[in-house]
Write a protein that binds this DNA or RNA. Sequence first.
DNA 1: CAAAACCATTGACTCCACTCCATGGTTTTA
DNA 2: TAAAACCATGGAGTGGAGTCAATGGTTTTG
Lengths: 124, 124
Amino acid sequence: MRIGALSALTGLSRDTLRFYEKQGLIRSFPSSEPSNTYRDYPEDTAERLRMITDARDAGLSIADLKTLLDCMESGDLGAFDLDAFLDERIAQLEHVISTAQRTLGMLNGTRAAIAVSDQIHIPE
Amino acid sequence: MRIGALSALTGLSRDTLRFYEKQGLIRSFPSSEPSNTYRDYPEDTAERLRMITDARDAGLSIADLKTLLDCMESGDLGAFDLDAFLDERIAQLEHVISTAQRTLGMLNGTRAAIAVSDQIHIPE
DNA sequence: CAAAACCATTGACTCCACTCCATGGTTTTA
DNA sequence: TAAAACCATGGAGTGGAGTCAATGGTTTTG
């Protein structure tokens, strides 16, 4: 699959895809025809990008994501404490979830307050 | 309360506090003694900063946060659609929560896989 | 009272994650 | 087959959110 198709499929810009590839989050083959230098992405790249987008949206950095993806592919990588790393990232994500939930509660409270003040200002 | 105390209380650096003040997220009085130019923060600033930190950690931008805090204080502000704004921020936070949960699932799966491969490599 | 600790301001700097641009080659399409 | 659409590379630029450093006042402390 060429970069334009992948871009259309994922909603990520070509530039972002090339950027992610340079960062090592995704990979491509050189084009099968040697007449051009177009990238050729494996079919499962879109799926991989869905994981990447989720993780990015959840607040994981590209560097951490690369570490994780590398580990997921090759079992482990070097003598580095993957278990501890996973624990940290998991804690980070749980922290995000709880702060998001608290903030959500705050916003719902604000909306309720606005509704009440509307009630007062626009009685019927 | 002076900036150092507030910093100790919240874990945010003095620089960050001054930065947040410049961005309009928090406010201070000029010092009661006119001999110095120290900021004097109201007592409830720490509480306010806890909300701010939660919201920032959850992914809200400073600009959005300012809009929200301004609205929460003054009912509404101008002829701008606060309700729609709230809906968008709420959707954003819900999105963060769901992507974080999916990513969390992925990481737990990874940890399980590692555990299994350890089981194989280090049988007893 | 002197040193240490605290505070202010201004402006430069860093880091991250893109995003844009210029230039030039290849494919597709009307 | 020419224009339009697609692709590549390299490097510069952007925006958000801090962070740091220099300089110079004020307070606290031993």
